[in-house]
């Protein structure tokens, strides 16, 4: 808990005349789950892409702190270094599992790819790790050699999570991980993510428009609107005692379960 894993400040980016990020700052510490909420077009996915180095901001800086404690400006990292980072200390879970999986490669191969990319060359060891992770995400290890295209949407998403976590990243970016899933499937996935995050001490930066998901998973919440962070703080305080007009609207729009 000594220093943030990721520190961003003064981020600006616009698409034409539309500001997607307007002076955004954000830090995330080890083991912390931070949710970014807001309606579509509020800039939350753009923020995730900028923080993870996939998109370059017009102004501002994102600093990544490596396990040895040294900081690196993400935007100055080379392609190779950034790619390595995305396969080791970072992970990215996409909304659509098709973007994060190879559908023509078996479940075991999907999990194994990250291990092989980081140098694993023992087939038996890779199989064993894949079997353990399938079990962890509640997929029958007997399905290890099945193709993900034969999986349900929820299973595909769980497989994507296994594939991402197998190399024990410290920071995981998640872009609407439960979007597009049935409500019953969502609940199971959310609970799975919650348990994994707690067990592994992961830091997670979660983009979602699902307030209930944010409440369940996140320690801290950022509310975005038109490229600005209009309110942030402890999740239950932001949701139960919203200060900004937009946050009050957002909270009032949620059906109480």
């Amino acid at each position: 808990m000594s220093a943030p894993l990721l520190e961003a400040s003064g981020l600006r980016l616009s698409f034409g005349a539309v500001p997607a990020l307007d002076d955004v700052a954000l830090s995330i510490w080890p083991g912390e789950v931070v949710a970014i909420v807001g309606e579509s077009g509020s800039g939350k996915t753009t923020l995730l892409r900028v923080l993870s180095g996939l998109v370059r901001p017009e102004a501002g800086e994102v600093l990544y702190r490596d396990p040895a404690g040294a900081t690196h400006p993400v935007q100055a990292m080379g392609d190779a270094a950034l790619r390595r980072l995305h396969r080791t200390d970072w992970g990215f879970v996409h909304q659509n599992p098709r973007d994060g999986l190879r559908l023509g490669v078996s479940a075991g191969g999907n999990i194994g790819e990250r291990l092989m990319a980081t140098g694993a060359r023992h087939y038996g060891g890779i199989r064993q790790a894949a079997a353990e992770w399938l079990q962890r995400v509640e997929i029958d290890p007997a399905r290890m050699d099945a193709l993900p295209r034969t999986f349900s949407g929820g299973m595909q998403q769980r497989l994507q999570i296994a594939r991402t976590l197998v190399t024990h990243p410290r920071l995981v970016f998640m872009d609407e991980p439960t979007g597009g899933l049935d409500v019953s499937v969502q609940a199971r996935l959310l609970d799975l993510i919650r348990a994994l995050v707690a067990d592994l001490g992961l830091a997670v930066l979660l983009v979602t428009h699902d307030i209930a998901a944010a409440r369940l998973l996140a320690h801290r919440l950022l509310v975005m609107r038109r490229g600005q962070v209009v309110e942030q703080g402890l999740t239950d305080r932001v949701l139960d005692d919203p200060q900004h007009e937009y946050t009050q609207l957002l909270v009032a729009s949620v059906l109480a379960a």
């Binding site: 490669v105 078996s106 191969g109 194994g112 790819e113 092989m116 087939y123 199989r127 290890m144 050699d145």
Partner: peptide, 11 residues
């Protein structure tokens, strides 16, 4: 990717 291909062969 190539290692994944060989992995798939063995699997």
């Amino acid at each position: 990717l190539m290692h994944v291909k060989l992995y798939e062969d063995i699997a």
